[in-house]
Amino acid sequence: MNNGLDSRRLKNIVSSLPTILYISILFYIPIIILLAISFTPPRKFIVEWVFTIENYISIFTNPIYYRILLNTIWIVLAATFMLIVIGFPIAYYLARVNRGLGAKILYFLIIPVEVNYLIRVYAWKVILGENGFLNLLLISIGLVEKPLTIFFYSWIAVVIVLIHEWLPYVIVPFYVNLVGIKDELYDAAMDLGASRLQIFRTVTLPLVKPAILTIVFLVTIPSLGEFAIPYLVGGQSGLMLGVLIDRYLSGFQLAIGAALSFFLLVITLALSLVMIKIFGYEALYSR
């Protein structure tokens, strides 16, 4: 009896070993190295193995980091909010109003994902840039005299490109979630006396919670570390932590870069835990 249990436990350990090794080597060990470097003095080109919390002190005392952190959070929240505002009605229409169209058109919504990320970012330059389509259009209809620069190299440009980048990842979870709600639930709610608005509030919204959680994990949290989009279109007002980390790392200031990375990681983890606390683990897997 005892032997059987032990051998089963052994089997479990052995069979989960590849996963443990994979995650350790590719995730945890690099993170531990990162953590270690973040506690070394801020030197250029070298890592001096002396313990110090200097980097963290400067992160928490230098207001520029706060500003960029708040900027990062603001941009990501604005993008998430807009994504949900745009994505939910599209998904709702395709999943519940015009179902025949939904099955056909969903694929076309996903196609842009297959185009390289950088090419898409550059494409926005053609539209939003100083000599881009939008400015030419505004000039030709006489709304403005000379090209506006607010569209490009700004936080608005980052939000727009983030929306374009992530929209399919918002529509698909909503769509899948909404398609799965049985028509009979709506009939039942109506039969029990609910108006359309009440049905939306008491049936639809609670049942798309899993999609919202998926979106936060799939879109919002990864966006906090976004580097290419703010780097390419963000300019000064679109500066995000990812860009800053890149500047330090490519400038060989590893220690402060590592500290900022770790700082971002903690924020990300905290946000994840808050979401799980609100929605519960189950929402991730099932309704």
Partner: peptide
């Protein structure tokens, strides 16, 4: 919702949440 009837559905249609 303005009729004095109530329906029990084939799949019951209980609110799962």
């Amino acid at each position: 919702y303005k009729r004095d009837t109530s329906m029990i559905f084939q799949n019951l249609a209980l609110f799962p949440h």
